[in-house]
Computed example of a mutant assay.
Amino acid sequence: MASSSHFTPDTSSSRSCKYDIFLSFRGEDTRKTFVDHLYSSLKQHLIEVYKDDEALPRGDSIDQSLFEAIEDSQMAVVIFSKNYADSSWCLDELSHIMRCKEERGLIVLPIFFDVEPSDVRNQKRKFGEAFAKQMAANVTKAEIWRKALFNVGNIAGWESKNIADGG
């Protein structure tokens, strides 16, 4: 992990983590394109990355394994795409990421892949349509998810439209 010390604010005061980066993304939108390229590039730079299809132990409870991996990471990179909010798994993952940000200082870096930060923050346009479906199906979690989306939408991140060849 020494090679990635530039990702951690102060490694002397932070606890040792198994992963440098936890990747949160909607598989059907970005797994075989952006996420696979990002993952490969990070691994080439000897950065320890948690990506569910590479690191999730077979036979484990998915939610518990994901939450433990988030807790055992220095940073979470959340790749928001148009259908990210169409997954209750992604929304639960995001809520846990934001809880870890507040409770233990997890660094959160959002990437807005073909969506605007304001779409995430305010659940608008295609992103909002996807969120509305989950909100209707999971009324008890809706407010927790909405707060997490609002808070992460206020974090400075990368927007694909501002990156060369990003759309």
Rank of each mutant, 00 (worst) to 15 (best):
A164Y: 15
I155P: 01
I79V: 15
F150S: 10
L42M: 08
E68Q: 13
L109A: 06
D165Q: 14
Q123G: 04
A136I: 02
E129N: 15
L94C: 08
N162L: 10
F127E: 11
L56A: 03
S4C: 14
G167K: 14
I97V: 11
A164L: 15
I111L: 14
F34A: 05
D119G: 05
S24E: 00
P9C: 10
A69K: 04
Q74C: 12
S61T: 12
F113N: 06
S95T: 07
I79M: 04
L94E: 07
L106I: 10
G166V: 08
R15V: 08
F112S: 04
E102N: 08
S41D: 14
K32P: 01
L56D: 03
S61Y: 11
T8I: 15
E143Q: 08
A156V: 13
R26W: 00
Y84C: 07
W89D: 00
D29G: 12
I70Y: 02
S14N: 11
V139P: 02
G153Y: 02
S5A: 13
L91F: 00
L46C: 13
E54Q: 15
S13R: 11
F127H: 07
S24W: 03
V77L: 10
A156C: 14
K43H: 04
F150N: 12
P110V: 05
D29V: 11
S81D: 09
A137I: 06
D114S: 12
E103K: 08
F127G: 07
T8D: 12
K133M: 03
F131Y: 13
E159M: 08
Q123N: 12
G166I: 05
F80L: 05
F112A: 04
T33G: 15
N151L: 13
I70M: 02
M1Y: 09
A85V: 04
S13D: 05
R146I: 02
N154A: 15
M75A: 09
R26F: 00
R15K: 12
D29L: 12
N162H: 12
E159G: 09
T140R: 12
H96D: 01
S41G: 14
Y50W: 13
L109M: 14
M75S: 06
I155D: 02
T33W: 02
R99A: 05
E143F: 00
V77K: 02
E54P: 08
E102L: 10
L46G: 09
F34V: 10
I47Y: 00
I111H: 04
Y50R: 08
Y84K: 08
L91E: 03
C17K: 13
E54V: 13
K124N: 12
T140L: 12
L66H: 04
E159I: 10
W158L: 12
D29M: 09
K32G: 13
L94D: 03
Q123K: 05
P110A: 08
W145C: 02
D72N: 14
K133V: 08
W89C: 02
Y19K: 01
N151C: 11
E71F: 05
E68S: 11
K101D: 06
F67Y: 07
R58S: 15
L66Q: 07
S14R: 14
I163A: 09
V120S: 04
L66V: 07
F7T: 13
S65D: 01
N83Y: 11
E103S: 10
T33H: 10
H37G: 11
Y19R: 01
E28Q: 05
R121H: 06
P110L: 06
S118R: 12
Q44G: 05
G157D: 00
M135I: 06
E116T: 14
K43E: 09
E48A: 07
G128Q: 02
E116Q: 10
